[in-house]
């Protein structure tokens, strides 16, 4: 039984077990991740009538997503796993979106996008699902303006585009379970920020006298 968390959009927390969603709760507000994360974990455990000792791992969506919120989920997942002495299973949040699509009957090539703010979208391309319905991603998740995406990534123009505004933690959990069952690789421990930190380089000191 996994506790699953995704904060790449709003805050979503779920409990999954053997391909079943036992609980899923969310707050879609994109500015309150740190406030709600604890209550959502407690609520999902409660809804699933599960205790911490019933959990065998924590599944976490590593993004891409806006940094501040994304980090809240990852920090919580890491700390929870440490406290409960269970492993963390990391997945790419877009892979969870694609997995949900394929589970729901979508076939073939899809382009999954999510809001990156600043009039850009995060996107990932998939050529289809394998025999276990696991999505086959082509390349790393990237960042583009929606209009530029069509031009600069012309080869994906024929892909069915799925603009998601939400990543469900249950999908993250179900994907983690299935990756684990089939011995597939999980995502790397680095969050998929896809943007460098905003910094203004100190360009020497500005003159103060005229």
């Amino acid at each position: 039984m996994l506790l699953a968390i995704d904060t790449s959009a709003g805050t979503s927390v779920a409990i999954v077990d053997g391909g079943e969603i036992r609980a899923e709760v969310d707050v879609r507000d994109t500015r309150r991740h740190a406030e709600v994360i604890g209550s959502l974990i407690l609520e999902s455990l409660d809804d699933a009538a599960a205790a911490v000792r019933d959990l065998t791992g924590v599944a976490i969506g590593m993004g891409p997503g806006p940094f501040t919120g994304l980090r809240v989920g990852i920090a919580a997942a890491n700390a929870f796993a440490l406290g409960a002495d269970i492993p963390v299973h990391r997945v790419v949040s877009h892979d969870a979106l694609a997995f949900a699509q394929y589970l729901g009957g979508t076939t073939g090539r899809i382009l999954v996008t999510t809001d990156a703010r600043r009039r850009e979208r995060y996107w990932s391309a998939y050529q289809g699902a394998d025999g276990f319905t696991l999505p086959e991603r082509i390349g790393e998740p990237s960042l583009h303006r929606p209009e530029a995406l069509e031009h600069e990534v012309a080869e994906y123009a024929s892909f069915r585009r799925i603009d998601a505004d939400w990543v469900s933690a249950a999908s993250v959990g179900l994907l983690a379970e299935r990756l684990g069952e089939h011995g597939r690789a999980f995502a790397a421990p680095e969050p998929l920020y896809l943007r460098s930190p905003d910094v203004t380089l100190a360009s020497g000191s500005k003159r103060v006298s005229a």
Partner: peptide, 13 residues
């Protein structure tokens, strides 16, 4: 927020 999220998750676990 990093410390808060970690502290909450640790406290629950």
């Amino acid at each position: 927020m990093v410390g808060i999220a970690a502290a909450k998750a640790l406290a629950i676990a």
